[in-house]
Design a protein around this nucleic acid. Structure first.
Lengths: 337, 337
DNA sequence: AGCCTGTATGTAAACGTTTTCATGCGCGAT
DNA sequence: ATCGCGCATGAAAACGTTTACATACAGGCT
């Protein structure tokens, strides 16, 4: 009736609980015959070890925790998928905690994971070195994603936003656009800031000709739409618009279409992330590809490596490259042919 | 140095561990003054209760497990988001397990969750009543999503696929299409089968005029594309195509575009699910809206309700309605004006 | 034959909590 | 004054495992 425990199996197999444990785990230190008997008894009783008890004694949960922002949008679904795939391959469970409105909430979430995870994957704008020092147990391995934290105490995995943004500006220049506007992302988002810097740096190379033109946004489609309207109101209209993420590019595109403009003939457009949707809209969106699934996978693999090595293993920061994906919206074919 | 436990707090506050536990939890049964002292000690030592130990004794993990198929596509990202939102609101954690290639793997995943979750949310084509009987502990509450399981032993939450599909056929008829083809989903998927039935039933109402025309697919964009090509090869081309999910509709649309056809002028198209992407493609896709986020949220809320009530509470099957969303691809405006 | 070594097994401690139960104390009611 | 009652507190059991240690036994060595 009640849950059946290792003791029941021991009784059934007529051995001690120790032997049951040995037989069911390593299998070593137990004779073939008893091993057999134990396995049979376990199967017969439908015995399933109680995870919590095991965690308590072994101090291992085979679970990794993921602290993420709101799961909205394709970026996170892809990221989770990458993490999940890698976790599954390693037999690790995934405990997810998302949507933290503020620092306090993020801290609470992080603390609540204590004792139920072996390591943490953290992607949150609320997290900085001080936050981690006070909320992350010293011994708990963690990998930070897209974080500004530089401390060698933590392992961090970033996307090369700066290079990606610069490369996109370069591309837009190459296909003939001079006045390139930028729709920035949220101020406190590290990725967004890096993309902004990349844009500005690349534009500075042509400073003599034209200066940077940055409209603020917050990564939402809605903010991209508003930015689009604002750009249309400028006395001198830009020839190309580079949005700090794809969703804003989509919103911006809608603003342009609604105003009767043709993309890319009247104005070119580019995004960042390469979420699946970019392939389906019309015109298809030129963007900077971030291999999101790989990002998740790599993060998990680094964390897994951390779990294996008991030695601290110098936390090496790492950066994932990204590449330009030229589609219709940037008007590349118009110039090339 | 090592992890600090409740004993350390007790020593620091000069009380017994029992009092620490009382002070930190309910707070009742302890004087205001000791409560204060304990909280101070806990804060000073950065004490965090060990989740596993607590789980073991309370037999509560405040975690719910979600057994899902591969997380690919917007459907699942939306679903997870709905689940996550509701879980967060109730202070529940989310343990996710996805991508089960076969029955055995699904069973293993389900068993691995034993002892670390209070309840299960299950969406998997491998799951039937027999599977549950042998792999789901009797006392573990579970909510099945989009499942064919009828047993009153389990709580199941379905989408009204049949009515949705019928309504879509009706809509397509109303805007003037006679010959309506259907691209079916995977054979073993319950949703897919119900949509198929809904289509056939609605078509049967007009049997005298025209018969059903079903092409097989598997919910992937690729299979929708292939189905599109196949439809184009038919001697009498259908006037409208109804795909069992949106991604296949997208694939099919690409096939049509590639063949130089104009949607909806030359051929109308409709999908099912109303994933976000439907709003961004051109033409925008007429579809059947399944409130995916609500589905996830509702599922979690029912599970939470199950957790509260110790009494079995007759497992009531429930169905979420869905509604037609008319956009450009079905050619509705052409007829109405 | 005696000893030592290795191996299978069992006993019991340990993991960090919560909770039951007993204890002792103060205080109002009789 | 005594009794009893409520309440804060502490001691210890319990949760279900793993594992260190003890034990016993078999067999190969000298």
């Amino acid at each position: 009736m009640a849950t059946i425990t290792i003791k029941d199996v021991a009784r059934e197999a007529k051995v001690s609980v120790a032997s049951v444990s040995r037989a069911l785990n390593g299998g070593s230190g137990v004779t073939e015959e008893t091993g057999q008997r134990v396995r049979e008894a376990a199967a017969k009783l439908h015995y399933i070890p109680h995870a919590a008890a095991r965690m308590l004694i072994t101090r291992r949960s085979n679970t990794i925790g993921a602290l993420l922002p709101d799961l909205y949008g394709e970026f996170f679904s892809e990221l989770i998928r990458g993490i999940d795939l890698a976790a599954r391959a390693r037999g690790l469970h995934l405990l997810i905690s998302s949507s933290h409105d503020g620092v306090a909430e993020a801290a609470a979430a992080l603390r609540a994971m204590q004792g139920r995870v072996d390591g943490m994957l953290i992607l949150s704008e609320h997290v900085d070195a001080a936050f981690l020092r006070s909320n992350l147990p010293k011994h708990l391995p963690a990998v930070l994603l897209n974080s500004a934290v530089k401390s060698s105490a933590y392992d961090v995995l970033n996307v090369d936003n700066f290079a990606g943004a610069s490369a996109m500006v370069k591309h837009l220049r190459e296909v003939g656009h001079q006045r390139i506007a930028f729709i920035a992302g949220p101020e406190h988002n590290y990725d967004a800031r890096q993309r902004d810097k990349g844009y500005r740096a690349a534009m500075a190379q042509y400073a003599a000709e034209v200066s940077a033109n940055v409209i603020s946004g917050d990564f939402s489609e809605e903010s991209g739409y508003r930015a689009g309207l604002e750009l249309l109101r400028q006395k001198v209209r830009p020839q190309a618009v580079f949005a700090a993420n794809d969703m804003m590019a989509v919103g911006c595109m809608n603003a342009f279409k609604q105003a009767g403009l043709d993309v890319p003939r009247d104005i070119a457009l580019a995004g960042f992330d390469d979420i699946p949707i970019t392939r389906y809209i019309a015109p298809t969106l030129t963007t900077v590809r971030v291999r999101i699934v790989d990002l998740g996978r790599t993060a998990l693999e680094r964390l897994a490596a951390l779990l294996e090595n008991t030695e601290p293993s110098a936390a090496s920061p790492h950066t994932l490259g990204c590449e330009i994906v030229v589609r219709e919206s940037s008007g590349a074919n118009r110039k090339t042919r």
